[in-house]
Amino acid sequence: MAETLLRAEGLGKTFSSAGRLFGKSDPGVRAVDDVSFEIARGETLAVVGESGCGKSTLGRLLLRLIEPTSGTVHLDGVNVTELSRRDMRAVRANAQIIFQDPYGSLSPRRRVGEIVGEPFEVFEPSLNRTQRRDKVATLLEQVGLSSAIMDKFPRQFSGGQRQRIGIARAIALNPSFIVADEPVSALDVSVQAQIVNLLQDLQEERGFSYFFVAHDLAVVRHFADRVMVMYLGRVVEIGPKRAIYDTPHHPYTQALLSAAPQPDPHRKTQRIVLKGDVPSPRRIPPGCHFHTRCPLAQDICRVERPPLRSIGDAHQAACHFAVPNPIPLSS
């Protein structure tokens, strides 16, 4: 395994609303609960899970766009969670983010050249205007745009083009780590493939690592090196892409994969339909978070949290009864 770039340990975030004047105090929403993992240099770790499982929050915790309530993040050996705000700003050159919403992520009143050139103003203030424009032009061409668009406003572009502008901004300072927060889910299907390929090409050229938040399992299968599955703020399974897709151990992963549409209409697969809804993150069940919907749940699941256990080569699952395919996938 290559050198570790990023290490998260026991990362947690509880959002608490301000204490009310009257009435009971609010326990808050535990969006991310004791999450630990590592990302190697040049690797793509994809995070999947349904809406509200904390995957986007986790991405922002890694960059300290949201302050974690507990745990640490080491990037390139530096513990970024204990840096002061000022020191943190210096680290930001090395860790960037690509947003889901290509419309909201570009200020409507700034020109493309100003948006993409902003990182240089912060980190390379000695550059004069012409030098900065040259750099921006190179970046725009690298993401497949014309450098002539520099003086236009974001509203003049399509979603895919805007996403390219956002990518140019993210790679401007040549970071070694990029959080891609569902970078293609807001785009037309025809454009999604182009953007995914662009992200891959850039990774090959520059060798950065992705923390790739997604809910499209097909995109993840194409893109990721390793996959991490989250449910209600916790990691339920993590492992190499092949292991997760071929031999999922956690019943939630199995259900998630069985719900993905099959491109081949003749191949019949058994859908695992989970009972009920995801519990409210305000009232997370004790023990294993998944026990309220799990077909395998036993008494122990209601009391004891299952630790992430190694079940194969770099493959871990958090289930008391983790076995490969305990539910028959075909009947």
Binding site: L65, A93, D101, G104, S105, S107, P119, V122, F123, L173
Partner: peptide, 26 residues
């Protein structure tokens, strides 16, 4: 709340600069 303000934080802009550049014009 807009992602472009978060993006400005992510590229390391200081708060006064974010206010002048991104909040006031909008």
């Amino acid at each position: 709340q807009e992602p472009y303000v978060e993006a400005a934080v992510a590229v390391g802009l200081s708060s006064p600069r974010i206010i002048i550049r991104h909040v006031l014009p909008n």
